[in-house]
Design a protein around this nucleic acid. Structure first.
Length: 432
RNA sequence: GCGGUAUUGGUGAAGCGGUUAACACACCGGUUUGUGGCACCGGCAUACGUGGGUUCGAUCCCCACAUACCGCCCCA
């Protein structure tokens, strides 16, 4: 095979694209009830956009960025996540201006890129659906964003959802906590796993969710970030928890939950699903949080923001295949007999399609038997047969493939008044 | 970036140094002339991921590369 798709990419063929559309449509449906509207930003941005937002030391920037120099010598990167580009657009278009209603609420969906080793549910080009809301720091917004995420997953009939929340406080909080954690772990360094000893230097917060069992024990007694929150952050977090409880939403506070990207502040959350698709282990499908410094970081006013992202590939793996829509049935298949029926056939097909039904025919000169086979393979509801004798008699047989019953309809109606034909068929065969 | 496993037709795959590259499914055609099933008959890999090497001879052995899957790092 001469050509193959680039490593870590996937072709989404029609059999799957129906499921993608289903998920995307659901997202739009649910999000719009919360008054979120779609925003489309470029899938590539200046490299600096992501370097600025994600933190220079983060792995996303240091080794996973899909970047290149374009012909004009600009350092470009394919977006590794959605938030940075949206914030850039928010600032560049001055959407923080007084003529906009706050909070400014948007959602997006599309491809993201990370130069990493592909694994199950992890590709170099993957897809996210995300939302962002700017310009309000009310904890009520946190609660609504979280509940919207849950409603979306519920609308897809996902069960076994688990919501975990944490607060990272403001940047001063994180600095103090960072120091406290290092102070606690440094004396224990020789007991840490090899990976975590390295993390102690590079990213101590990551040790909190180490997979190593002994690390877990040591971390259990580590100081908790919750104890380092400022009074304001404490109050915000308390209000978020109260709001969730008020909506009857179950949650767990996980004070060891951390983030790979540097820009998060205060509330962060993840929604996990336990699924047989992943050996009944829990898998995060939605992750999000506040990023109250990011707009300012991009040269805008000191405005707060909050959002979340959904990994679509991962989400699709979790969805029950039985509940997924399949390719829609074909309404009509037109079988032809003889040589001189092609033109009338084209006229009939056009009339059917103009009435809003799907219709197809044979293009390979197959025998009538083969045409019926094609109709069956296309899952057609009805087969219309047109041949010389029909053209002569003006009567055309229409067969219901499910029952095998066949009725005669007028050729003139087929060509000129298909609605009448359809009503006749519905009377004869009932239902839709 | 590191490690493991794999790569044969449309699909599932057998073969592991010399074969007509098995078998099954799917698909296409036919079993006389205009109807989906079944049965029967026939067709369907100048070819075994790519490039080198070893050999009289390689799908089968060796090396490199590519890709996929799994794990780590990382992330979600």
């Amino acid at each position: 095979m001469r050509y193959q798709k680039p490593k870590g990419t996937a072709d989404i063929l029609p059999a799957d694209s129906h499921q993608w559309q289903y998920v995307e449509n659901k997202a739009q449906e649910i999000f719009s009830t919360y008054d979120f509207h779609e925003i489309r930003t470029p899938i590539f941005e200046s490299y600096d956009v992501f370097e600025r937002s994600s933190g220079e030391s983060s792995d996303v920037v240091s080794k996973e960025m899909y970047d290149f120099d374009d012909k004009g010598g600009r350092h470009i990167a394919l977006r590794p996540e959605g938030t940075a580009g949206v914030v850039r657009a928010y600032v560049e278009n001055k959407l923080f201006g007084p003529e906009q209603v706050k909070p400014y609420k948007v959602y997006y969906h599309g491809p993201m890129f990370r130069y990493e080793r592909p694994q199950s549910g992890r590709l170099r080009q993957f897809h996210q659906i995300g939302v962002e809301a700017f310009g309000a720091s009310s904890p009520a917004l946190d609660v609504e964003v979280i509940s919207m995420a849950l409603e979306f997953l519920r609308s897809l009939k996902l069960s076994g959802l688990k919501l975990e929340i944490n607060s990272l406080g403001d940047s001063a909080t994180r600095e103090k906590y960072h120091q406290a954690l290092v102070d606690y772990l440094t004396p224990l360094a020789d007991q840490l796993s090899e990976d975590s000893q390295r993390r102690l230097q590079t990213n101590p917060l990551r040790i909190l969710d180490s997979k190593d069992a002994h690390d877990q024990e040591l971390v259990a007694n580590a100081p908790s970030i919750i104890d380092y929150l400022t009074p304001e952050s404490q109050a915000h977090f308390a209000a978020v928890k109260a709001g969730l409880s008020g909506l009857g939403i179950d949650y767990e506070v996980d004070s060891t939950m951390v983030r790979g990207l540097d820009y998060y502040t205060d509330t962060i959350f993840e929604i996990m699903v336990k699924s047989p698709a992943f050996n009944n282990s829990e898998m995060t499908v939605i992750a999000g949080g506040r990023y109250d410094g990011l707009v300012e970081e991009f040269g805008g006013p000191a405005e707060p923001g909050i959002g979340f992202g959904i990994g679509v590939e991962r989400l699709l793996l979790l969805l029950d295949q039985d509940q997924m829509p399949v390719q829609p049935k074909l309404d009509f298949y037109l079988a032809k007999v003889g040589d001189d029926v092609q033109v009338p056939a084209l006229r009939i097909l056009q009339e059917i399609r103009r009435c809003g039904f799907s219709a197809d025919q044979d293009y390979l000169d197959r025998k009538i038997k083969g045409q019926f086979k094609s109709a069956t393979r296309l899952d057609a509801r009805f087969v219309i047969t047109v041949g010389e004798s029909e053209l002569a008699s003006g009567e055309v047989p229409v067969k219901d493939l499910a029952t095998g019953e066949q009725v005669q309809v007028k050729l003139s109606d087929l060509e000129n008044d298909f609605q009448a034909v359809y009503q006749q068929l519905m009377q004869q065969f009932g239902g839709k």
